[in-house]
Structures are given as C-alpha cells and as structure tokens.
C-alpha cells in the first residue's frame, strides 16, 4: 500500500502557504517598524522551517517507498543496526546550529521590538494609557488631556508609548499590523512601543480571554497625519464632555459601550497602578534587574519579590 497522504499534505501546505502570503494576512502586512520586524522574523523562521520540513519529508518518502514490504522482497531479513555515531552526531549538531542561529535572531529582534523602534528613539514619544475593563478599552492621553473609549487615534511617524493596565481580568492589547501584543494587568503597568508609518485604520483587539464579552473587545486604531491628529485633539477638547468620576464608574460597570470621547482623563482620580505601591515595572527593554524575577530553578521563585524593593 502506497502512502500518498504526506505528499498530498505537503502539496496542500505549499499551495495554501503561497496563497496565504499573497493575500493580506494581517500579521504579514505590517504598517509600522515593530510589526515589520516581527513579520520579517516570522517569514525568516518559516523559510528555515520549510527547509527542515523538506529534508524530513524527502527522507520520509524515500524510506517509505524504498523499504515497504512487497511481494518482491519477501524473505528479506532487515539487518540489525545499533545506530551510527557520526550520523547521530550530525542530526544533533545541525539542529544545534540552527537553534543557535534562531536564538541570535530571537534575542536581537526581541530586544528591538521591546524598545522604541530604531530611528525614532530621539523623538519624544506620545504617551497613551490603555486600560481594559469588562469589556472595553479606555485610552487616556495625559499630555493632551483627553480620553477615548474603544478607539484610539495616533499620529503617524511618531513613537507611541502605550501604557497598559486592566480593571479586572488580564487582557492583551494587540494591533497586529502595528506590532505584537502585551498583557494589561490590574496590579502593574506594561509598556508597548508602537509606530504607525502610514495613515489608515488598523484593527486592534483584546486577544486574551476575559469572559463573556471578550469577543467584542475590538477597537480601531486610526493612524493620522500629525496635522490631522492635532486638529482632532483640539476638536475633542472643544466638543467632548469632561470625564467625571461618576461617569467613569458608570463606564466601568457597563458591559459593552460604543465609542466615547472626553475632554479630560480618569488618571487624575483613578491613577494607573504605577509608582510606589505598584507591582513590577515590566516591559522596559534590557531591564536586567528583571532577570531574577524568573529564577531558572523551576521550584524556586524566591526572587520574585526583589523588584518590590524598588
């Protein structure tokens, strides 16, 4: 009996892969430097993996076609083979080399995407607090003194520093075309640096399951030219109502709301969990002091408390 399943599979995967790449898969259609780094990393790893798959598949098909039991080889007694030191060393060392290469790529790109993207590091970033609550997103612009719900407008070609935290369950802030996600949690603030390099509307969402309304936690990120952006900010300041504490509490307790705009932020009366009483300060690139948060010993997380002394 011939086994065509895997061949067929390989064929399908190649076809789907090609068609997939040509259409616009969001992750592979980046609109900013962070997402571009990630998209390149993904495509690079896909190519490496395709080569590995190909080697395995060729060997596999060869072995299966050549050594299957047939009438012709009846009576053939397969030899006893203990193994071969050199062959086994080969298929240990080549993967080791591949893993080293991938490790270098990973460490470099991970560092790159945690930082303000190269080329933008001299600019003062626009700080936006993004807080999740069941089940919506609140965006506060402390410098501009405005706040929006379920949509966020950003100027293009300017680094944006999203500071993420949550009212309630863990959420994950994700705008696939601008960059990968990061968690928003209740007892600390995470930082995510993004830049949009072309104007347009980008889909953003919570990607971490947070209960019943989770599927509806989408928001729009609108990249605008700097002039349009300033105009929009002025507009909001002029026309939108102030965000009072009661209004904010009402917002928190409403499960699903549409878009909202306010001409003040909730940060004054409900500050983000940072500063003295906050938990960790994560997400800063190269923060070596965080290394001991994750002790290598599986049973020992004894050092987790160190950053509390900050």
């Amino acid at each position: 009996m011939k086994k065509r399943g895997p061949l067929f599979l390989l064929f399908i995967s190649v076809v789907l892969l090609l068609s997939g790449c040509s259409s616009n898969l969001l992750v592979l259609d980046p609109k900013g430097p962070v997402a571009r780094t990630q998209s390149n990393t993904i495509i690079f790893s896909m190519i490496v993996m395709a080569v590995i798959l190909l080697v395995v598949y060729i060997l596999y098909v060869f072995v299966l076609t050549k050594y299957r039991a047939t009438k012709a080889n009846e009576g053939y007694e397969p030899p006893h083979e203990e193994g071969n030191k050199w062959l086994e060393l080969t298929w240990t060392l080549i993967p080791v080399i591949i893993v080293i290469v991938l490790s270098v790529v990973t460490v470099r790109t991970t560092n790159a995407v945690e930082k303000v993207p190269a080329g933008y590091d001299n600019e003062k970033p626009l700080v936006i607090y993004a807080a999740s609550s069941n089940w919506k997103w609140h965006f506060s612009y402390p410098e501009e003194g405005i706040e929006t719900v379920n949509y966020v407008n950003i100027p293009t070609h300017r680094p944006v520093e999203f500071r993420l935290y949550a009212y309630g369950p863990i959420a994950s802030f994700w705008v696939p075309q601008l960059g990968g996600q990061k968690y928003a949690m209740s007892d600390m603030v995470n930082t995510l640096n993004l830049v949009a390099e072309s104007p347009g509307s980008f889909m953003g969402k919570n990607s971490n399951f947070s209960g019943k309304g989770f599927a509806h936690m989408e928001f729009e990120v609108l990249g605008m030219s700097p002039t349009d952006y300033t105009k929009w900010v002025d507009d909001v300041k002029k026309t939108a109502p102030k965000l009072t504490e009661t209004e904010f509490d009402k917002l928190l307790n409403t499960e699903l709301v549409g878009r909202k705009s306010y001409s003040s932020t909730h940060l004054s009366f409900r500050p983000a969990p940072e500063g003295e009483n906050a938990g960790h300060h994560h997400g800063k690139a190269n923060s070596t002091d965080n290394m001991d948060n994750m002790n290598m010993d599986d049973m020992d997380m004894s050092n987790m408390d160190h950053s509390q002394h900050e």
């Binding site: 049973m299 020992d300 997380m301 004894s302 050092n303 987790m304 408390d305 509390q308």
Partner: peptide
C-alpha cells in the same frame, strides 16, 4: 519536596505583599 518547595516559592513571592 516538590509540594513544599512550591509552597515556599509562593510564600517568598508574597511575603512582603
């Protein structure tokens, strides 16, 4: 030992919270 190590790890994580 694994059980108590986990409990100790938990304690050390939370002891000044």
């Amino acid at each position: 030992i694994a059980l108590f190590s986990t409990l100790f790890a938990t304690y050390f994580t939370l002891w000044n919270r």
